[in-house]
Design a protein around this nucleic acid. Structure first.
Length: 488
RNA sequence: GGCCCCAUAGUCUAGCGGUUAGGACGUCGGCCUCUCACGCCGAAAUCCGGGGUUCAAGUCCCCGUGGGGUCACCA
């Protein structure tokens, strides 16, 4: 067998996702089990959404989990750079190679035309996808002319219209996908940067990746990737598609922040220990055997493998209750000193108290008043059946309040920086848009975030409680409102 | 909707043709105990449906059904 080299390739476009941790864990375990290498590659080709903060947060979270990589943007390695934005030239050259070979072509269609195409296809219930409008432009020489004239264009993969592509998944066996379902994917965007499809194939090849272990959602685009390997004349790596983590809702949809906390930072913030998190993630789809559920990463590595039947393919529900139970097991085996250290590392520390100090200086007369007042900065979920006032402004129905809150959380999610000023601006703008009184929205928010009618300044409070817990509390409050009857 | 993936209790799973279908979370009951928690004991609860193959099917095959994913100049 060739040397095992696997990678986790997160896109730094948001919070460090539990799904990233999950896939990283299985990649890591596979690499370690087979004495191979585990790499981290940052897929930051979406200039609009990628950020350096997100990249750093992802690295921090993966390290927190103990999933160290052998090669990556920060540690270097023989196949760098490991950040795709720094490899733009490589992709451009490879895109050109494909065009020269006739495996790809330049496309000058405007976004407007593509939008029209889509509407037309939807309205007439036609198959979706690009219609190949620019396919003939290379042969006629028109593509050269228009490109030379500076006309904006992308590079598309020329996908066969007929036949099928066979994906030999290491866990699932042969998956046959009709080529007619796959359209001419954009490989190089008009900004000159590649899409995932091109970048991932080029990098996996150049970085000598032996096994692409990724989530199930990629199965349907695998033919594009396989076609690319073929067009380049490269040997494709083995593919392993892991199941998708699910929400605990009725439908079991793929895990999403609207329904379930997804940020690894959230779990760290509510005091989940990294070993417990890793252990729990491993339990989703994989089992240690011998009816043993609690094990270390090292023990997992000894037994882990990716062959048919070794991983369950049903999308597992991310069960917070079981996570909490497991975490409790880990906490129990700490001695007094270690447990004290855990408290300190978590939140009972000087750094956090320094942040608390300005909020409570004027609100306490004796030091002993701090803790009773500041409970909501330390706790996770709030029980809305036990709070000081109902979550219902005067003359508002539970239904309209729920809808309002739903819009508020969505808007909150668009906020890049969770700082006091932007928060206040966002809330005031929101009140303006919705027509609700600021006092109602602010009090509602205060009750949701703190469970109290009185708190330090709202936006300072929101900031310090943090995005993930705030979102979670809003979601719980919305759920709670479903059980509230309108006062008659 | 097309294509693809998946299917053991509410949840996570064991099972790899013959088992009283095992374990864990959660739930319920009991024990322990100053309370709570831990711990211990116990209970209820599962093979999606229908056809095959076979002496024998949760296990293999097919068809349904259900759920999910995907159909972007996002990954």
């Amino acid at each position: 067998m060739t040397d095992v080299r696997v990678r986790i390739a997160p896109s730094p476009t948001g919070d460090p996702h539990v799904g990233t941790g999950y896939v990283a864990l299985f990649n890591y375990a596979y690499a370690r089990r087979h004495g191979g290498k585990f790499l981290l590659r940052i897929e930051d080709t979406d200039q609009q959404r990628s950020s350096r903060e997100s990249e750093e947060a992802i690295m921090r979270s993966l390290r927190w989990l103990g999933l160290d990589w052998d090669e990556g943007p920060d540690v270097g390695g023989p196949h760098g750079p490991y950040r795709q934005s720094e490899r733009a030239q490589i992709y451009r050259e490879h895109a050109k190679m494909l065009v020269d070979k006739g495996a790809a072509y330049r496309c000058f269609c405007t976004p407007e035309r593509l939008a029209e195409l889509r509407t037309h296809q939807r309205e007439n219930k036609l198959a979706y996808g690009y219609d190949g409008h620019c396919r003939g432009l290379e042969a006629s020489g028109e593509a050269d002319k228009r490109a030379a004239a500076g006309e904006a264009h992308v590079v598309r993969l020329l996908m066969p219209d007929e036949g099928e592509t066979v994906l030999d998944d290491q866990l699932r066996g042969e998956v046959r996908l009709p080529n007619s379902e796959v359209d001419d994917q954009v490989l190089l965007k008009s900004d000159g940067l590649p899409t995932y499809h091109l970048a991932n194939v080029v990098d996996d090849h150049l970085m000598k990746i032996s096994h692409v272990i990724r989530a199930e959602e990629w199965i349907s685009s695998a033919p594009k990737h396989l076609r690319l390997y073929e067009a380049f004349g490269w040997q494709a790596p083995r593919f392993v598609h892991l199941p998708l983590l699910r929400n605990a809702d009725k439908n079991r949809s793929k895990i999403s922040k609207r329904k379930n906390p997804v940020s690894l930072e959230y779990y760290r913030d509510i005091g989940i220990l990294p070993h417990a998190m890793v252990n729990f993630l491993a339990l989703l789809g994989w089992s240690f055997g011998d009816d043993i559920e609690k094990f270390t990463l090292e023990q997992m590595v000894e037994r882990f493998d990716l062959v048919k039947g070794s991983v369950n393919l049903t999308g597992p529900v991310f069960d917070l209750e079981k996570l909490a139970w497991l975490n409790g097991k880990y906490l129990q085996e700490l001695d007094d000193e270690q447990l004290a250290d855990a408290f300190v590392a978590w939140r009972v520390n000087r750094d956090f108290l320094v942040k608390l100090a300005p909020l409570f200086r004027e609100r306490i007369r004796k030091l002993d008043e701090l803790m009773p007042q500041a409970t909501y900065f330390f706790c996770g979920d709030i029980d809305y059946t036990q709070i000081e006032a109902p979550l219902l402004p005067k003359n508002r129905t539970p239904k309209e309040t729920r809808e309002l809150l739903g819009k508020l959380v969505d808007k909150l999610d668009t906020l890049r920086s969770f700082e006091v000023e932007p928060l206040e601006e966002l809330f005031r703008e929101f009140c303006e848009e919705s027509g609700w009184k600021t006092r109602d929205v602010f009090m509602l928010t205060r009750l949701i975030v703190t469970g109290r009618k009185a708190s330090p300044p709202l936006f300072d409070t929101i900031k310090l409680v943090g995005r993930d817990r705030v979102r979670r509390r809003f979601r719980l409050a919305i759920e709670h409102l479903k059980t509230v009857k309108a006062p008659s």
